[in-house]
Design a protein around this nucleic acid. Sequence first.
DNA 1: GTCTATATTTGGATAGAC
DNA 2: GTCTATCCAAATATAGAC
Lengths: 202, 202
Amino acid sequence: MRDRRAERRESTRAEILDAAWEQVREHGLAALSLRDVARSVGMQPPSLYSYFDSKNAIYDAMYAQGARECVEAQQALKPLPDDQLEALKALLHFFVEFCAADFARYQLLFQRTIPGFEPSPESFKISEDNLAEIGEMLARSGVTDPGSLDLLTALGTGLADQQISNDPGGDRWIRLIDEAVEMFYEHITKKAKKPSKGRRTR
Amino acid sequence: MRDRRAERRESTRAEILDAAWEQVREHGLAALSLRDVARSVGMQPPSLYSYFDSKNAIYDAMYAQGARECVEAQQALKPLPDDQLEALKALLHFFVEFCAADFARYQLLFQRTIPGFEPSPESFKISEDNLAEIGEMLARSGVTDPGSLDLLTALGTGLADQQISNDPGGDRWIRLIDEAVEMFYEHITKKAKKPSKGRRTR
DNA sequence: GTCTATATTTGGATAGAC
DNA sequence: GTCTATCCAAATATAGAC
C-alpha cells in the first residue's frame, strides 16, 4: 500500500530544494538563506526543520541532487560511438555542457566555495561512483595512462570554467570542444607510437 | 618632506589587509569577518572604518593587491625566450603556479564567489591591463587567432583548477604543463599549415 | 584615530502550544 | 507538522566621547 504521508513529505522536501536552487541561482551559492527559502514555500522558518536538520543538510541534499543529475545526464549518452575520437568528443561535450548549464550547481559539486560545508559520505559517493564510471568509459576510449587522463580532465574543467566565467549563456568555449578533443587525441595517439616523447624534465 | 602620518596610515592599512588574507586563507574567502580581522590587529571592529569604508572596500583592496601581485609575477619572467614553444611554456608555468600558490587569491581574482562583491573599475583595470599584456606576449609567441587563444586560456585555467581542487600543495597537474604546451603548440602549428582542419561543424 | 556604546539586520536554531 | 515566540550569536555599520 502506498504511504501517502511519506509521499507528501518527499514532495515537500523537493519543493524546499527547488526553492533553494532558485535562490542560489539568483543570488549566488553562498547567499542561501533559510528565511527566504521558507518564505518562498509559504512556511515560517522553523518549519523547515521538520524536513531538514540544518542549513548544511539542505546543501547536502542539493549536492546529492546535483550529483544524481550528473549521473543521469551521463547515462543518457550511452551507448558511446565505437569510434574512440567520437566517443571522447561526446564525453567532453557532456561534461562541459553539464557544468555550463548551471553555475551554482557547478560551484556546489566541483568547487569548495561554501566555508563550512562538505558533502556527507553518502552524497559524495554518488559523485565518486560516477567519476569512476567516466574513468572506465575513458579507458575504453583509449585514454589509459594517468597523465593523459589528468590532462583530459584539465581540458574539460578548463573549457567549462572559461565558458561559465567569461561567456555565461553563450558558446564561445563550447564551440572549441571538438577541436580540443582532436588536439588531445592526436597527442595521445602520437605518444603511444613514440613513447620516448613527453618524458622531458624541466 | 615625508608625510609621516600618511605613511603610518598606509602601513596600518597594509596590516589590516595582511590579517584579512590570513583569515581567508584559513577559513575560506567568503568567511571574512570584520570582527576577527579587527581582533587580530588589536583593534575594536569600528576602528577599521577609519581605514576602509566597508567590508567590500576591503575585498576590493585585496583584489587590487592580488592583481598587482599578478602583474609583478608576470613581469618577473621577462624577457621571454626567443623560442616560441619555450616562451609559451614559461607563460603557462607562470599562470598555473600563480593560481595554485593561493587558492583564496585565485577565487577572488578569477571567480565570482562572493555574493555581493565585484571589483571597482580602478581595481578591475589592473587585471584588464595585465590580461591585455599577456595577450600581446601570446601574440608574439605565435598564438594569434582568437580560437587558439581561447583554447590556451582554457588549458591554463583547467590545469590551475585541477591542481588547486584535487592536489593542493602538490604538483600533479603542474607536472603536465610542458606536455600540455607541446600538445597545444603542435596543434596550432599544424593548423597554420593546413587551415582546412579544425573547421568541422558538429 | 581609537574607543565605548549601540543600532540594526540577519542569520540559524530551539521550545512549546496547538 | 506548523505555528508563535524567542533565543542567541554574529554580522556590518554609525554616533559620539575622549
